[in-house]
Write a protein that binds this DNA or RNA. Structure first.
Lengths: 335, 335
DNA sequence: ATGAAAGCGCTAACAA
DNA sequence: TTGTTAGCGCTTTCAT
């Protein structure tokens, strides 16, 4: 036999379903007495309202979708962890969707999610499918970009300040005496901003920016290990390398190991994201930390605001990163 | 303006909603002509059926909840990745719920998930809340335990064969000449099975099982690093250690580094789960691999069967692990 | 082969 | 303060 409905409660309490509905939703005015009676009966019957039915009346489903390329990438797993945690606080469940960075998966997901009437969408990836994105915006579908931006589109976002982050990474290295600093970057907007920050720090320190010290790599550790060759196997090898995310920096670490280059004695390495991997590798990786918990909280707040009242003004929030210094960076050895 | 409904389609096609519903669901009999016409109109209108409304008529919500303690633990992230992937194949979305191993979070989640009418539940954790579990079973709520068992309860599960896995780990070490093999375990059922397998391998090889070589640790890398002291700082230090999961094994690696013990020259280390961490640490970790992709596929198949027809016989499936040999295990050096 | 109509469980005017 | 009632968008039985 199935769960009791609002009718069962109403009957048992000798009132109408409207009255019961009112006590459930805390709307209208009902005497303390009936309220209590109804509440007691709901407990006795172990009644719990059917969210599906109330969603049919235009109410929330209390579900937010979170789109990411790949959870097995630790940075996305950490995003998800905190997004879920923050959602939980407000009674929202998170529907997790992997996109693999494929435009068709993205649009298929969006279609399904809309059919399922999720209340909102948080996108934490490049999102290749610009057309779909634009349509979502036109429809005023509650949508927030997380850890990623789309400056050309009127869409709210919550991100870390990548520019400052890149600046901090480079400054740290410069302060240790390094003057030839290589960069391993991904082909992404945030990498570009991180590079701009790096360049700014160099310039400020009176150092020349050398384009050939900036190399682009695929996203995986092994891609990065390969790409690092371009930096490590040259005559004028840099004395420090900034990996635009931890995976890339770890690739550099592995490339060094393969070549017998000692980190940090012969080469300093810094990452970005400050994932849990940093304390697992050896030497432990210095990295720029995103304030993920705060970012997530802000994102959930923002999307709930958008869900609850359609015409919330759109914002872009940028938060400041912090540096976590560990073992992979050190003072430049005197030549 | 909101999305078109089945009424809009019916009106445009000059038929009843019943007919439209039939073509959507491929039920009843309708002439090829009307079918085509309706399909064309649905496309024109960019109509997509409201899953919420059809769920109200007792149909699926196409949502499956996946409960795990913590996504930021890479093994759970990998589970999630593959569960989501397999779900996607059948049009199911995954609602991800963190439990933090807390009984009250578990039960709160279950309550909400039931209100939201998710079709089924996959639980990949200890699940402390036995009462709730029992109730779910009584209600015949579609439920599968993943990578974890509950032998005393009539509940289906899909797991790796931990016993064999432990046996394989120990056998590998024994075949390399090790005779004093320590174990670092978690306080969990699967660790216990892995230990039993280890003991069996020892006994078979004519080696005595020494209880004091088996030490229990907390779940994190740093817990394990602490606990490893009990094995590493004794006179008769083992020559090999089996970490009952990769995180524990990595803790051992770190403890070794702190003590200047060279792996694998002075100590062999083997893990379990074969997460991506294995190729990130140094030396790369030998580990026992779960066939996660197959496990996930099987789990999704099973739960969908349970969703679609209530009285599916319950099964417990156990799959065989495989060993991935990397750099952390080596022949015992002659004394 | 198609349609009329009832109803899933709930909410919100509006009436009383 | 409480109840009546009309849907929300869809499925399904039973007629036609």
């Amino acid at each position: 036999m199935s769960s009791p409905t609002i009718y069962d409660v109403a009957r048992a309490a000798g009132v109408s379903t409207a009255t019961v509905s009112k006590v459930i939703n805390n709307t209208g005015r009902i005497s303390a007495k009936t309220r209590e009676k109804i509440q007691r009966i709901m407990e006795d019957l172990n009644y719990s309202p059917n969210v599906i039915a109330s969603a049919m009346k235009g109410k929330s489903t209390y579900q937010i979708a979170f789109l990411i390329p790949d959870v097995s990438n630790p940075i996305y797993a950490e995003y998800l962890k905190h997004i879920e945690e923050s959602g939980q606080e407000f009674g929202y469940n998170i529907v997790m969707c992997s996109t693999d960075n494929q435009a068709d998966k993205e649009s298929r997901h969006i279609t399904l999610l809309k059919q399922r009437r999720v209340d909102g969408l948080i996108i934490a990836s490049k999102f290749n499918n610009a057309a779909v994105l634009r349509q979502l915006i036109d429809e005023k579908f509650p949508l927030v970009l997380f850890a990623h931006e789309r400056p050309e589109l009127p869409v709210p976002s919550v991100t870390v300040d990548d520019y400052i982050g890149g600046y901090m990474a480079a400054s740290h290295l410069i302060s240790l005496g390094h003057r030839r600093i290589g960069v391993l970057a991904e082909d992404s907007l945030s990498s570009k901003d991180r590079i701009r920050g790096y360049q700014c720090a160099l310039t400020e320190a009176g150092l020349a920016v050398q384009e050939n010290l900036i190399v682009v790599s695929g996203p995986s550790v092994s891609d990065s290990e390969m790409a690092a060759a371009n930096l490590l196997d040259r005559e004028d090898r840099p004395t420090a390398i900034f990996g635009c995310n931890d995976l890339l920096a770890i690739g550099v670490l592995q490339a060094c190991r393969a070549r017998g280059i000692r980190v940090p004695d012969q080469l300093s390495v810094i990452g970005f994201d400050d994932t849990q991997l940093c304390s697992i590798v050896s030497p432990k990786l210095t990295s720029i930390a995103q304030p993920i918990r705060k970012l997530s909280k802000e994102t959930i707040d923002m999307i709930i605001r958008m869900i609850e009242q359609a015409d919330t003004p759109k914002q872009r929030i940028k938060m400041l990163p912090e540096i976590s210094i560990r073992e992979s960076t050190a003072k430049l050895a005197q030549a």
